[in-house]
């Protein structure tokens, strides 16, 4: 695979990566969201693999494989289980309507591009130029978490943030060290697990996973 093709592929993957994030913001069906997240996980894996290939690094390849298993495999699987267990959450309920969300996402993407300039400047390789994509996804994920009522969509928001950060890590530096990545991944998996259990408990105690119900604790 030539360098050009590789970088073209990388750009393509990054573009799609951002698009999937926007898609998550746009779609209402939870099942569609999970599919989009799976796709995003796969795209992230692609980016990791492409970069690993570029650096000819076996360790990076292993990290990429791990990422793939976790983000395109385990995490979506867990989400689907939540979705099955909590049947009332077919649709997300946005607090901000979809068009406004997209508009906000556009603004956040711009901010991501602006803010990522030091990262782009510092990155050694051409792939660094795609870093802003990751940052934009982080912000979009954050926005999603802040504006969706269902518990599961908030989990998806957290996962988007995580994907975005992983993308930044890969694009800007070729991936954080293996040990760190292992720890981070384990933490992520556990966090999702915890959230899954908590979603079940929410459903059991509140009878729904509507986060607006969570207003017992306030001042």
């Amino acid at each position: 695979m030539s360098h050009d093709v590789s970088s073209q592929l990388l750009n393509l993957a990054c573009g799609l990566f951002l698009l999937t994030a926007l898609g998550v913001l746009w779609r209402r069906q939870v099942s569609a969201l999970v599919s989009l997240l799976t796709l995003q996980g796969a795209l992230l894996t692609t980016i990791a693999v492409l970069l690993a290939a570029e650096h000819h690094s076996a360790a990076a390849l292993a990290v990429a494989a791990g990422i793939g298993i976790l983000k395109a495999g385990i995490v979506p699987w867990m989400l689907r289980r939540v979705h099955r267990l909590v049947p009332d959450a077919r649709e997300t309920r946005p607090l901000v309507n979809i068009s406004a969300s997209i508009l906000a996402a556009a603004g956040l993407t711009l901010l991501g591009y602006a803010a990522a300039r030091p990262l782009v400047a510092a990155a050694s390789s051409a792939s660094g130029r795609a870093t802003p994509v990751g940052l934009a996804v982080v912000l979009i994920g954050f926005f999603l978490a802040a504006t969706r009522q269902r518990a599961i969509s908030q989990i998806i928001g957290v996962l988007l943030i995580d994907n975005g950060i992983a993308a930044v890590a890969f694009l800007a530096t070729g991936g954080v060290p293996l040990v760190v990545e292992l720890g981070v991944s384990a933490d992520l998996a556990l966090a999702v697990l915890v959230l899954q259990i908590l979603t079940n408990r929410l459903h059991a105690t509140f009878g729904s996973t509507d986060l607006d119900e969570l207003r017992e604790l306030h001042d």
């Binding site: 978490a145 929410l202 105690t205 509140f206 969570l214 604790l217």
Partner: peptide
Amino acid sequence: RTRESVEAAWKYVVLCSVGIA
């Protein structure tokens, strides 16, 4: 495992996970 504690746990995990991310 009361309503309040589940609620608190959810908020705790979501907010802290996002923050720590």
